[in-house]
Computed example of a mutant assay.
Amino acid sequence: MTLLERYILKIAFTAFAACLIALTGVIWITQALRELDLLTGKGQTLFIFLTVTGLSLPALISVISPVALFLATIYALNKLNGDSELIVMSAAGMRPLKLLRPFLVLAAFVCFIVGMITIYIMPASFQELRNLFTKIRADFVATMAKEGQFITLENGITFHYRERSGEALLGIFMEDQRVKDKVVVYLAERGQTVEANGQAYLVLEKGSVQRKEPNSRDSSIVAFERYAVDLAAFNQDGGDIIYKPRERGTIQLLFPDKTELLYQYQEGRFRAELHDRLSSWLYPLAMMVIAFAALGDARTTRQGRGLAIASAVLGVVVLRIAGFAASSAVVRTPVAVIGVYGVPILAVTISLMLILQGSSIRTIRAKARVLGRALIPSRNSQTQKA
């Protein structure tokens, strides 16, 4: 790589890093504000809060990186043109493909980072996030319940205790409405959370369990001296965590268990998630080439670049809309997989054709100017002889 190419790469990389850090920071703050309930409402520690918000960073970076590269390309080309450096390079005979080379190097780096994040890091972060939230919800007695207050979880569990005596809870009321036709009510004089073999249990003492019979007004009441409730069972049937397609590793999506009920019910989502991951690395390259095709030509200060920037932004918007449409279509039909890869590849092809076409036009114009200068002296000499 020549000194000039390293200079261009330095400008583009600095702009990319600045855009990536700024955009990621702003969006991360908005995500962190949404999770403040972990500290205020659910009584979690600052470490848990930072862990939850930090696990969302890989997904943010994978989405923001192509946009940051697009903005960095626009900034670098505008800066080179504004300082008349792009005009000098063009006048010195620097070909557009040579000018494109440092941007391709940066795009290759971003494509590699995005590919690694979407294929390996992001699924692991989503899976860890699901495990953490499951653990928080399972231990809702210790983390969410407050003395004298009724709390209602999203899955239909209502919990209340009158007061706390040391580590014991007094006057416990718990209602399980996960199954609407089969409501279960637990009443106990006292209880205490116990952890055994990695599972959280609520051990109730001197109370009763009231179960309402399905499709009936009758209910049964069973008194007990000691009764253990598995808190993890309030989150998943059977206590097992069922991961969504985006929370599964890429190998699991490549070789899924076709006998699994979730896969049979959401086969299209498994397919769409897999091909979205495998095609994600193409979008940074496509966005960079679109920006270069729109702004790679040298322009004088009298020639505005606003229209070129607007066309580049419009091209990226169309690219993303077409990509989302192809991804949605994959859920319904496997044939749409062609569109998932075809959309970014088509954008790269069209942009490169525009770049090469512009280069050919400039070459023809340059030859015409040289030919014109050669003909002018000969005409002048003929005029003088006449």
Rank of each mutant, 00 (worst) to 15 (best):
L33H: 03
I119V: 15
F324Q: 09
V229K: 05
F126G: 06
N215E: 06
P344A: 07
P96I: 08
A91I: 02
V26N: 07
V63S: 01
A72S: 13
T53S: 08
L170C: 09
L46W: 12
A272D: 00
E273M: 09
L253N: 08
D230W: 03
S219C: 01
K258F: 12
S125W: 08
L261S: 12
T45C: 04
I338G: 04
A336K: 13
C19W: 03
L371M: 10
Y201T: 07
E213S: 11
L274P: 00
K180T: 15
L254F: 13
V52H: 00
W281N: 15
R246Q: 14
L132A: 04
L254W: 14
L69D: 12
P344K: 05
K98D: 08
K135Y: 04
E267F: 06
H275F: 10
V330C: 05
T45E: 01
Q127A: 14
N78W: 15
S381C: 05
G166M: 04
E195M: 07
G342D: 00
M1D: 04
G82P: 07
E147T: 14
S219H: 05
Q357G: 08
M89N: 06
F13C: 13
Q199R: 10
I29A: 14
G41A: 09
L33F: 14
K42P: 09
A286F: 08
A228I: 03
V194M: 10
G304C: 10
A368G: 13
R6I: 08
G342T: 02
C19M: 02
